[in-house]
Amino acid sequence: MPASAVRKHYCSRCLNTFSEDIDQCPNLSCRRQKPARGWGVIFAEGDLFDRTYRIHKMLAVGGAGVTYVARELDGDNEEVGPKLAIKVLLAARDQGPYVRRLATEAQIIQELDHPNIVQYLGFVHRAGHSPYLLTRFESGGSLLDHMRRVGTLTVKQAALVGRQICWALEKAHEKDIVHRDLKPENVLLTREVAVHEDPVIRVADFGIAKVQGSLGTNLTRVGAFVGTPHYAAPEQFVGGAVTESADVYGVGALLYFTMTAKHVVRFADRIDPEDSFQLLCDNLPPQLERPSDPPDVVERMQTVLAAAMEVDPLARCTVVELDEMLQAVATDQDPVVPRHSRTVASGVDVAPVASVLGVAAAAESLPPPSRAHRPTAPAPA
């Protein structure tokens, strides 16, 4: 291990981290005694993981696990193959629903196998070791990292990124999988690019995806909020049915942020969900302001955002239609806005907010809308 690398421990009760192997958690609101099997360990650079991988660095710590960059070792203890991302459950989360979620995520990305979705490399779950998921490491970091390096995206760059996300979602929706947590942190770049280059992306983190059919059952209790408040669709705040339409909204909210560095509702993660819902209803669609882009290009993207971010999930465009509109923006054409009716089968007109609260909840019992078959679009070179 390099001299500068320090292995950290953590308390599995409060997730507080500390450098020394002490007898009691230093968190004054916890003060847990050191458990018999020891504190949880956050691996440091140079550590061996599961006797098979050498840790290069820690990427992120979440509420359920830690993600590392590593490489596999051969029989001579030499590193071989590409860099990997290893997502390991925390010691306090290595059982029950957390394991089922990680196993489901592994199965999802293995089955989807799409050039704009992170590549599955393996899943390990055995007695005596925390479960972990192996995926290909994307060296460009997240879309949020890219924005921190170069600033906001131009409208056309956002359109091209949005198209790639749509291609990934088309494949997921064909399998009745709804991502539910689209955000810049969950969109990865295959490599770092300069400010005027167009990123090639892969969608990551299907950990809270809604899965139906052969892949598994829904692991989220009815009415629970799931997602990230800044990018969640209105129906996610009020316990409405979360369908493919929520992902369409998520793409719109994500693209709006990449072009403006602003959220539709500030501090949505700190206020009551019902208040967030009302604020969203009052502020949708968001007004796109991009003085550095040509006004006609901004106006076209504004049209796209309006179609993707309708309050009423039944009135939003589909992911295929969103892809087509973004293609129009990227090629200096006027997007063709689909005309979706806010009516139910009875023919009664439904107000947008009522649809979110009522009609959307009934949508889960209806068969999914038919999709025109078309080949999966490849990632741009």
Score class of each variant (00 low, 15 high):
330 A>D: 14
319 V>Y: 05
205 D>F: 03
365 S>H: 15
339 R>A: 11
242 V>Q: 02
113 D>R: 14
320 V>W: 09
370 S>D: 12
140 G>L: 11
57 K>I: 01
52 T>R: 15
6 V>Q: 08
240 G>K: 01
252 G>I: 01
100 R>V: 02
158 A>K: 09
76 D>K: 08
84 L>C: 01
243 T>W: 00
242 V>G: 00
46 G>K: 10
197 E>Y: 11
79 E>F: 03
307 A>Y: 05
230 H>M: 09
374 R>L: 12
107 Q>A: 14
89 L>F: 02
96 G>I: 00
67 T>M: 11
223 G>P: 02
131 P>R: 08
311 V>P: 03
16 N>A: 13
233 A>D: 10
167 W>N: 09
135 T>Q: 14
44 A>Q: 13
286 P>T: 10
287 Q>G: 10
87 K>G: 01
339 R>P: 05
243 T>H: 00
289 E>F: 14
302 Q>P: 12
53 Y>W: 15
227 G>T: 07
207 G>R: 07
225 F>Y: 06
152 T>W: 10
186 N>Y: 04
26 P>S: 03
380 P>W: 03
39 W>Y: 08
182 L>V: 01
165 I>A: 04
33 Q>E: 00
243 T>D: 04
66 V>R: 03
353 V>W: 01
208 I>T: 13
322 L>Y: 07
336 V>C: 12
91 A>V: 01
212 Q>D: 04
297 V>P: 11
22 I>L: 12
287 Q>V: 15
203 V>G: 06
57 K>R: 15
124 V>T: 05
272 D>M: 12
136 R>A: 13
179 H>E: 03
354 A>W: 10
294 P>V: 15
220 T>M: 08
117 I>E: 06
26 P>Q: 10
193 V>S: 03
314 L>H: 08
186 N>R: 03
111 E>T: 13
283 N>W: 00
71 R>S: 12
170 E>D: 11
360 A>S: 15
82 P>Q: 03
377 A>S: 15
190 T>H: 04
1 M>N: 01
143 L>F: 10
353 V>Y: 02
144 L>P: 09
